[in-house]
Design a protein around this nucleic acid. Structure first.
Lengths: 149, 149
DNA sequence: TTACATGCAAAGCATTTGCAGATAA
DNA sequence: TTATCTGCAAATGCTTTGCATGTAA
């Protein structure tokens, strides 16, 4: 039955985020709801804290940067979003829960999803005392510009 | 012919690093030689800037943090070492040039190599105007501690 | 001699934190 | 009411930079 490729339903994503908050005893405050709406309501995408902060400014409410960061962190801990560390000073958050990896266009700071089926990981046996937490695959790409001379 | 698994020769690694510097018109100054020795002389490993700085302090010469950072950056640009961004505040540098990926033990901040043969990437077609720069695969692992209750 | 390197301290920047005031249940 | 949140501004920590001094060729 499963849809062949990933289907993203903003409303479902938003609603399940909110209910997951509540299930974990975290209040669905106005700020968290606004942020969740912005994060989940625009289809699959990758956002930075700054990005999100800017989007909030364009909307009705004003939310402090600290709250944006704290909320992103909480959402990440709850597994609602995933953090992608593309480089030192750039964390992006991915609102797509389904298993996938990332194509990172370095010059543009842009990230594109790669469906998991295109990547085949045969990870060596992990000792029983360890627990797989996450697999980050970032394929780094550069645009050809000054090259090819 | 090729060796079945990776073989690392500290002396060769050091020497080829130095000659690559010279080939690129970068002087093999005392600081760079000291850093290269520390980086390549202890077998395959993953070092942070701070680590390296500490090791320098234990040795004869004193090298400033700025120089350590600048040198690591240069070495990375030249392809002598690889930077692994495991999280925001932790960049590690890997002295192993051969293609491989990383197992990151989050709680310990420790990185272990995974030979490439265990990972098979079938990357969706990359437009001709783009250039593959690097593929980072970080398998994130946590030790089981407070869990299993 | 002269371009390139180094070291220091100051600057930068994304992120985190402490704490007083605000808010949800 | 009371625990939890929020916002501000200050703090943090890694990394970078400007600039005067030092060094290799």
């Amino acid at each position: 039955m499963s849809a062949s490729i990933e289907v993203y339903n903003p409303l479902t994503a938003y609603n399940s985020a909110i209910s997951k908050l509540e299930k974990n005893g975290i209040r669905a405050t106005k700020q968290r709801r606004v942020l969740a709406k912005l994060i989940f309501d625009k289809g699959k995408r990758h956002i930075s804290a700054e990005n999100l902060f800017d989007e909030v400014k364009k909307e009705e409410r004003k939310i402090s940067m600290a709250t944006v960061y704290n909320t992103l962190k909480q959402f990440t801990t709850l597994g609602l979003i995933r953090e992608i560390v593309v480089d030192q000073n750039k964390s992006l958050y991915c609102n797509n829960n389904q298993s996938h990896y990332h194509l990172y266009i370095e010059d543009e700071g842009k990230v594109i999803d790669i469906p998991t089926k295109n990547i085949d990981l045969d990870i060596p046996s992990i000792p029983a005392c360890l627990q797989l937490h996450d697999i980050d695959v970032i394929v780094r790409i550069r645009t050809l510009k000054e090259k090819k001379s």
